[in-house]
Amino acid sequence: MAKRISVIDVDLCVGCQSCMFACNRRFAEAGLARTAIFVQSTGGFEHGFAVKVCRACKEPPCVKVCPTGALMKREGGGVRLDYRKCISCGNCVVGCTIGAIFWDEVLDKPTVCTYCGYCVSYCPYGVIKLEEVEGV
């Protein structure tokens, strides 16, 4: 069954970025360059935070704008990226309506969530959860 990272309640988010650092640690690196989940304030800390992460669309707009078929639909929702086919055009970043595809400046390739759920175990407040894509 296909899983995805769900944002359960964004108002619980304190902007600590633990999820972002966790995502980056998958590559055994400290920092933020390769994170596929992103937290930012919605106009200052006082207004709370937005969590940007791939929600595993059934009809992903990023796939539609990928000219080489590098981004492919994953069964059950969401996408997989074949780096070999990717020409670094950046269409997917623009094409993602919710801004959940990021750019790896070093590889010059997009960073897309792989739905592994590693970030979830570092969210101290249960903002995000790994769950089955609904209706599959």
């Binding site: 633990s18 640690r25 590559f27 055994a28 690196e29 400290a30 920092g31 933020l32 390769r34 570092y122």
Partner: peptide, 21 residues
């Protein structure tokens, strides 16, 4: 800034991080 840093002991890093966390 949005950089990344490479650790000398990557495996040890994750173990220690988890303990602190």
């Amino acid at each position: 800034g949005r950089g990344s840093l490479i650790l000398k002991d990557a495996r040890g890093y994750r173990v220690l991080y988890d303990e602190l966390y």
